[in-house]
Design a protein around this nucleic acid. Structure first.
Length: 493
RNA sequence: GGCGCCGUACCCAAGUGGCUAAGGGAGCAGUCUGCAAAACUGCGAUGCGGCGGUUCGAACCCGCCCGGCGCCUCCA
């Protein structure tokens, strides 16, 4: 039985979709005016895993994730750069797909854009005016918060309290200081669409209500986003949507914690953010390796907890994954031993599967999932010591792959073990130069193969000086030697 | 001022009323190895920021305090 923490109630609740077997979920995507940073990555990843687990659990999932492609910040950015706003949004939508693709985030079922839902947005605003929950001031339309009785239910605030501490500059035309714009009249040169209130554009919040209802219906199951969206964004979405329909909007609200740098929220305004692109560029590993390290790192902490980003944390994630992939390699090699471990494998798999389900059912506790994988890794390593049949090895690898898929881990067939910072040249500064073996650039693959076999020969005739010399030489190229008991060598890089 | 979150070993991180406080990394010792590497084995908190309280029993509940953070303004 899946339980999820619902921000609305502040508790873990049993999850039961409105229509049995079908889950309709909406996650706030990005406003496309800049590159995505790690915080966006975390949110995307968390809900990617939520979606994957729901599907794994047998639900048919309709997942909607929007692009907000009309907004003050986009206009501002366009003006700064002197480019049409459509060019800005197109650029960053592309960047979004590039980054999410690299991270292995599955595309949502529907990825709607605000600009393609003007009719629905206008209709929603019209309905709100009709119900007396919104009012027009010149070309603008505002939502009147005190007409919506349960305003503040999600963020657990009272209108009076907010007023007391509000540092917002109060627009005199508003009836209540917390009233927010549903529609903004266009100034010259701004993007605009026709409406009963004149040319204008939607305010922030309304686009999500319109898109969610269009693609999922007036009431749907799950709505997600970062903690910082609880107020005002999600609070306002609820007010608008429920205000217009008189029905419940989303039933379960899930919010992920922040990515922090030195205990502080990573954010644009603090300037302490890393873009996803930067991380891929900085880490000199194949993209797939960086992606998995990042995913592992982000999933090692429960999604609602704050997570401090650091190189140290990333390094640790890399080390741990090295260990997993080392095992995966060994699982493809014949052990030449009896298969005494085979009979224990099924119960270990069962144990893993049980822990996995239990952990994911408990509000997507990926930390425990990872611990379960680690324990399974140890157990399989142990079985390998006593001998596993090739079939059992394949079964073990498949188990990692199948359950790993749900959290997006262990899918690769290749891996890069050595840390190849800066390529061979900088590696030569380590062991090799100490041994007086300064390498002039990379060695050809043919030469590397020749050296590997030469080392094998040297070891056979017990010429360990030469064998070690070659080991160091190849280490400088990123190759790590693992000698097997039978005299053969496993080379990793 | 209002609302809320966090503080668990050197580091990361589960656990939120009851078996010996998961798991990993690092470290140390050992097995294996020509030496390594990898893997395996063993070792680590009488204690969960502090002080009180509730309870037969608390890291977990309550109160106060200390330290850090978030939202209330665009923010995943």
């Amino acid at each position: 039985m899946l339980k999820v923490y619902n921000t609305l109630s502040g508790k873990k609740e049993a999850f039961a979709p409105l229509v049995p077997g079908v889950v309709r979920m909406y996650v706030c995507g990005v406003t496309v005016y800049d590159e995505c940073h790690l915080g966006h990555a975390r949110s995307a990843l968390v809900f990617d895993v939520v979606r994957r687990y729901l599907e794994h659990s047998g639900f048919s999932v309709t997942f909607v994730k929007n692009f907000t492609d009309v907004d003050d910040k986009i206009i501002k950015r366009a003006n700064e750069l002197g480019k049409p706003w459509q060019e800005i949004t197109a650029t960053y939508i592309d960047a979004y797909y590039r980054d999410m693709g690299r991270l292995g985030i599955k595309p949502a079922t529907v990825e709607p854009k605000a600009t393609e839902h003007m009719a629905e947005i206008v209709e929603l605003v019209r309905a709100l005016i009709q119900k007396g929950m919104a009012y027009q001031v010149n070309g603008d339309v505002y939502f009147q918060v005190d007409r919506y009785g349960t305003y503040g239910r999600l963020s657990k605030r009272k209108l009076d309290d907010m007023q007391a501490g509000a540092r917002v500059e109060v627009d005199e035309r508003k009836r209540h200081p917390m009233d927010f714009a549903l529609w903004k009249g266009a100034k010259p040169g701004e993007p605009s669409w026709p409406s009963p209130w004149g040319l204008g554009r939607p305010g922030w919040h309304i686009e999500c209500s319109a898109m969610a209802m269009k693609h999922l219906g007036e009431t749907f199951d799950l709505h997600g986003g970062g903690m910082d969206l609880i107020f005002p964004h999600h609070e306002n979405e609820i007010a608008q949507s429920c205000g217009a329909t008189g029905k419940e909007f989303a039933r379960y609200w899930l919010h992920n914690g922040f990515v922090q740098i030195n205990q502080e929220k990573m954010s644009k305004s603090l300037g302490n953010f890393f873009t996803i692109r930067e991380i891929f560029e900085k880490w000199e590993h194949p993209e797939a390796v960086t992606a998995e390290v990042l995913r592992y790192f982000l999933l090692a902490t429960h999604y609602r907890s704050p997570l401090d980003f650091s190189d140290l944390g990333l390094d640790e994630a890399k080390r741990t994954l090295d260990s997993f992939y080392g095992l995966f390699n060994r699982l493809t090699e014949p052990t030449g031993l009896p298969t005494t471990g085979d009979e224990q494998l099924p119960s270990l798999i069962e144990e893993l599967a049980g822990s996995f389900r239990q952990a994911m059912d408990d509000d997507f506790n990926t930390s425990i999932v990872i611990a379960a994988f680690q324990r399974f890794r140890s157990e399989v390593n142990r079985l390998l010591e006593s001998g596993l049949s090739p079939a059992a090895c394949r079964r073990a690898r498949e188990t990692f792959r199948t359950l790993g898929y749900v959290v997006g881990l262990f899918q690769s067939d290749t891996w890069q073990f050595g840390v190849v910072h800066g390529g061979p040249a900088s590696l030569a500064g380590g062991d090799a130069s100490a041994a007086g073996l300064i390498v002039q650039g990379p060695i050809s693959d043919v030469e590397i193969e020749r050296l590997k076999s030469e080392r094998g020969e040297a070891r056979k005739r017990k010429d360990f000086a030469r064998a070690d010399e070659i080991k160091k030489l190849l280490a400088a190229q990123g190759w790590i030697a693992e000698d097997r008991p039978d005299g053969t060598t496993r080379w990793k890089r």
